[in-house]
């Protein structure tokens, strides 16, 4: 049987060429031939995503690529997961949304995808979410982290309101993580709005959240 690292390289190539069919054929063939789904996930698909993560950090890939790659990877991961014994996503629960008045969903969607790929349970509250709803849902679902994706400056004030609400209700252990173009252009805004952390892209979001919640 072909080695995992060789398969990983092939999978990465398919991702980089945005070749959905080739990626799909490869994973389907592996599963048909009895390849261990767990190995496929951990040693083939996830490492490919990590490689792309590094490229994004260096601005070597653009949004269009990340968008398609994430869809391809998610599709294949779902296919592999079906073959694996059911177990809940283990890393914890995350609440995600955009602040009231902000209807930009693309960054949020990418963040949700990559967090799910990293085994987090993500409750996506959608677009233009009231700060009470962020906090109520976080408490109700025992979430460790609230993630807010903000593209517009003037609606990002909703983030401060989430912070205040968390503190007022004694839930200051719930972490507040932010991202979006604003924070990339001015990382100082993170502190201004009372967030615990920010990340410049969806893949770093996973890293930052792992660090904050003490996961591996």
């Amino acid at each position: 049987m072909v080695q995992a690292n060789e398969l990983g390289e092939r999978f990465l190539q398919h991702l980089e060429k945005l070749d959905r069919n080739a990626a799909d054929e490869m994973i389907s063939a592996c599963l048909r031939e009895g390849y261990d789904p767990e190995v496929l996930l951990k040693d083939v698909i996830i490492p490919s995503i990590d490689v792309i993560a590094n490229k994004q950090q260096n601005r070597e890939v653009v949004v269009a690529q990340i968008y398609v790659m994430a869809k391809i990877a998610e599709n294949e991961i779902n296919k592999v997961l079906i073959e694996m014994p059911i177990k809940p996503r283990t890393k914890g629960t995350i609440i995600l949304g955009t602040p009231m008045g902000d209807y930009h969903g693309l960054g949020k969607k990418l963040v949700a995808t990559f967090l799910r790929l990293a085994d987090y349970e993500v409750m996506d509250l959608g677009l233009s979410v009231n700060h009470f709803d962020f906090v109520n849902m976080a408490i109700a679902f025992n979430a460790q982290v609230i993630c807010v994706s903000a593209l517009l400056l003037h609606t990002a004030l909703g983030i401060t309101q989430i912070r205040k609400e968390l503190d007022a209700r004694g839930y200051d252990h719930i972490k507040l993580v932010v991202g979006g173009a604003l924070f990339n252009f001015n990382p100082a805004l993170k502190d201004k709005y009372g967030a615990d952390a920010m990340a410049p892209n969806a893949l770093d979001a996973v890293r930052v959240i792992k660090e904050l919640t003490g996961g591996d």
């Binding site: 959905r20 968008y67 398609v68 969903g105 693309l106």
Partner: peptide, 10 residues
């Protein structure tokens, strides 16, 4: 944005 990217690329 998402629907537009989807139409273009996917």
């Amino acid at each position: 944005t998402e629907k537009w990217l989807q139409l273009l690329f996917d």
